[in-house]
Design a binder for these strands. Structure first.
Lengths: 336, 336
DNA sequence: TTGAAAGCGCTACCAT
DNA sequence: ATGGTAGCGCTTTCAA
């Protein structure tokens, strides 16, 4: 089985065969309105006969417009990103753009290298949850249009998921159910999202007169959630809001392992809605619609690309509480 | 906020800054062995300082090689794919290649269009679980090297995940635990994977003298799994092997809803290992290491690219049983 | 070991 | 309305 190998015709051959200049062939493809219709027709005919199609690479080199964009994420396998990637890809595709995907493996150096490598063949970047230092981001911004997702850098275009609104609703939901002592299981202290969620829980709790205690998950992972179960219980809380769905899922498992029934004996709320209704019981969670974030980021980038101007604005997306089956009124007090 | 203006450094600037010719810079990146090590070092240093990376587009125009490949999947959000994508991306990146990602949304027409659009700027394709008709695949194969994943087209390079081995091990595991009547919860009848798994279960069961009954999941999804729970019980089986982890997870939930304890009263085995240990109880499953498939596909493509020849061979990847906590000896018989 | 220069295929500016 | 031509950034002979 050998490799494919039919020779590809160039603009030159079409020009020769049609008896015109290369520039005329070029125009027939890019600005037909500038040409005599008869000429266009003849050129196109010859081109078709020869099986000619403009070489995108040569065109890109000449125009500096690539028809490509790059989407960079820290970890494709983190369930937060696939919906975002999918939506971004779909939107970009609609606009006729091809998308490069970069996985930085959570490593800033790798992210930096990736961006540098891609910079010469894309019209712009979407950086999701970038781990880069702010000045590194700004430096790249000096070369190519960039839209950030979940990263708040002043003066850059960015789409931010405002978990505060959904989080407040979650606390209210718990309060309405009768909970008066709840836990927040935190994520990475340096994470923008975590800071947001944490302070939103604290504030809402205070407003409603419920006590909020903070429990740190060793790591923002399933395992971290499992490990948080005893702490949450010994803090005598009756409900917990977790940094994200993975932590919540772990907490569910940890609780089950301790023979605590959810939601009868304890209520759990996740964040991000990446699990759908696939936990048991189906997880009540704060949806952050990462797909919307992906689509929106592309739209902002498209706008930036066509207008040639960056608004440098924060585009914030609301969140909402999705009530499923891990929340209920607190059961009778139980011994520690 | 205006558009970026700082230019991307070219080979020329690096040459000037390093006090050498452009060709020397070029060689420092492509054939460092041809140069004085000291020169290479200096050039690389300057390049790094300037943030220079070779322009793939210009390089492509000159060499005819793009330094890009495309990875096409039916649905980024299907948990089977992210690990595959991640591994493929990592391997390609190691080889210095950039990767385009295409999501076909399970639509053959879209897949076809995507491939056509990308063909002009990639050296080759990896098509994962392609939904294209065989002749469409062959047609594209005529233009660009292609490696298939989970699609068995004679004469093309392909990596196939052989679930048969792991499935047989699963049946044996169940048999050893004392199960004598098990269920297979099927997936899409037209799916190559499902056919494989189904027949493997049936064959292994027959060999071991266990009765296997087939239960169709309405859909190969979490919901399908939930819905299969009553059927599995009324068939008086004591264990089930599900088409994939999602179905298994659904079954777990369905069983829990019916107050059947897993694994005490019923054993469940999934397939693909996309959930890790994140179910409760942690799911025993047949690992299909989709990440290996992704990495392997890239390696085959790289080989094809460098040798200029396609072996047209099937590369089959074994699977193995990962025993976690959803399997145990059957409990006492229970009334329906 | 390094430099100079000719393209790769196309676009866009300047002429005509 | 059309032709001529100078690059776009890089690789790759050919010389030195």
């Amino acid at each position: 089985m050998d490799q494919p190998s039919k020779p590809i015709p160039t603009i030159q051959q079409v020009a020769r065969a049609a008896g015109v200049a290369r520039s005329t062939v070029s125009r027939a493809f890019t600005r037909p309105d500038m040409l005599n219709p008869a000429t266009v027709a003849r050129v196109m005919e010859v081109a078709a006969a020869l099986g000619y199609a403009p070489n995108q690479v040569a065109r890109a080199l000449s125009t500096g417009r690539y028809g490509n964009i790059a989407l960079i994420v820290p970890d494709v396998a983190n369930p937060f990103f696939p919906p975002l990637i999918r939506a971004a890809e779909a939107r970009a595709d609609d606009a006729g753009l091809c998308v490069f995907l970069g996985d930085t493996d959570e490593d800033p150096a790798r992210e930096d290298r990736l961006i540098g490598k891609l910079a010469a063949q894309v019209d712009g970047f979407v950086l999701a949850s970038s781990r880069l230092a702010e000045d590194a981001i700004r430096a790249h911004r000096g070369r190519r249009p960039i839209v950030l997702v979940n990263r708040d850098v002043e003066g850059l275009d960015r789409v931010l998921i405002d978990s505060a609104s959904g989080t407040a609703a979650a606390v209210r939901h718990l309060h309405d159910l009768g909970h008066r002592r709840i836990a927040y299981i935190g994520g990475p202290p340096s994470s923008w999202s975590n800071q947001q969620r944490r302070s939103a829980v604290l504030r809402a709790a205070e407003d409603l007169g419920v006590t909020a205690v903070e429990v740190a998950a060793q790591r923002p992972s399933y395992e971290g959630g499992v490990a948080a179960a005893p702490a949450v219980l010994s803090a005598r809380t009756t409900a917990a809001i977790a940094f994200d769905d993975l932590v919540a899922q772990g907490l569910l498992a940890g609780l089950a392992g301790l023979r605590i029934e959810v939601p009868a004996a304890f209520s759990v709320i996740g964040c991000d809605d990446v699990l759908g209704a696939r936990t048991y019981p189906p997880l009540t969670t704060i949806s952050s619609r990462s797909n919307d974030a992906g689509r929106t980021a592309i739209e902002i980038l498209l706008d930036q690309l066509s207008s040639g101007v960056s608004r440098g604005a924060a585009h914030v997306l609301g969140t909402e509480l999705i009530i499923r089956a891990t929340t209920a009124s607190p059961g009778p007090a139980r011994p520690i």
